[in-house]
Design a protein around this nucleic acid. Structure first.
Lengths: 227, 227
DNA sequence: CAGTGTGAATGGGTTCACAGCA
DNA sequence: TGCTGTGAACCCATTCACACTG
């Protein structure tokens, strides 16, 4: 078998995290009928340096042409394949509050390799309602929806208080990848992959840099003296 | 002035990105009346290793007590101060689609050092409507809302197509920190701080790891042979 | 003596600069 | 000639292990 010589294994995490950005930039180029692109141009569209882009792509294989650049369609395909987007992934969203409903109606799931297969909520008052041609189901439906062997991505969009409990339910049902939008850290067992997206965290990081910008702000001097 | 001996300057980016998580964990401890906490316990709550936590905190100063741990209230305050959360930051949200409305109604802004001061949309059909006791304003209102000297955080929740244009308007008005929820990379001038949050990207990263888990999936063998 | 704070060691990621190829 | 692919150098972050201290 000649599979092992492929550069497919061992793609660094930092590279994986940037591949979606490259894929999107390529899609935008394809939409305006660009057929070929240089590392310089693509890097600019994706907001990274060209050296970084080339190093990243080198982890997937040699898909460029020296002196020319990359074929947009071919590179798109290779990145999709590396990310595992050649087939769709089922997604279940838990928590039908403001955020959960916004995520459920989000266009761009289907186009990008994901399909929302179920919406769940523990509140009996919203269970049974329709949202974008899906019926909101009770938490108990999880065991029917998820088959332990098959891959499935769970999205947590509940308040912080119930996030851990929901995560436990997802894991028990057999979900092995979780995207957590709740404003709290959750613990998952070894082997379950978890990522976190949080508005407050992002704002706080921006606040830090904004504060650095101003140099020393007024109320800091008081504290400095008190120490 | 005795300010310069403080370890306040030069906090590594990776540390800054974790401070909000520590702050939140401390808040949860305080809520159940815990007064003191060890690095081991706090690290567990925040989902990191204790060595990492201690190293991170050491960049802020020496706020622990050897043989005991950290005072929950005091450490919370010190982290808040390091992040610049001792006063509120104004936030303007642009784009009142599903996501924009969800963000606007998000509880937890005020509690965390941020206050939504304006909601904007370019669609005349929604301008003038109320959302959570704020009137949706047209894009032109930006210049009145933002004062170039004063710090302000802009949140972009528009479709990808208008994201760059909105970013340009924000920058022109004087916003120097931007949080981009739109599904595209945007270019901002040197000196403007930009962060990006994207659902598709996160799902694609999860898909990659999910795919790795399965070992070799069926349709990959076809490609492997063709190469 | 329990648990913090930190030098030292290790590992990953980024940048540089250029060899190699269409 | 122009641009990719990549070794080498550099830089930042994490981990380790223990000196230090309340």
């Amino acid at each position: 078998m000649s599979v092992e010589h492929s550069a497919k294994r061992e793609i660094p995490d930092a590279t994986v995290a940037r591949l979606p950005g490259y894929l999107r930039a390529l899609g935008q180029l394809a939409a305006v009928d660009v057929l070929s692109v240089s590392s310089e141009e693509l890097a600019h569209s994706a907001g990274v340096s060209s050296a970084k882009l080339r190093k990243d792509l080198s982890h997937l294989g040699s898909y460029g042409v020296r002196g020319v650049g990359y074929d947009v369609a071919h590179l798109s395909y290779q990145i999709s394949r590396a990310l595992g987007l050649t087939h769709d992934w089922p997604v279940v969203i838990v928590g039908m509050g403001n955020l959960g409903r916004a995520l459920a109606s989000y266009r761009g799931f289907a186009t990008k390799g994901f399909q929302v297969v179920a919406l769940l909520d523990r509140d009996p008052a919203v269970v049974g309602h329709m949202l974008d041609d899906l019926v909101i189901q009770p938490m108990g439906a999880l065991d029917v929806l998820v088959t332990p062997g098959e891959a499935c991505i769970g999205v947590i969009a509940t308040p912080a208080e119930s996030a851990q409990q929901v995560a436990d339910l997802l894991v028990t049902a057999g979900v092995s990848s979780i995207l957590n939008f709740a404003a709290t850290a959750i613990q998952v067992p070894e082997g379950v992959h978890m990522r976190k997206v949080d508005l407050s965290t992002e704002l706080q990081i921006l606040a830090f840099h904004e504060q650095q910008r101003v140099g020393i702000d007024p109320d800091e001097l008081l504290e400095g003296a008190g120490r």
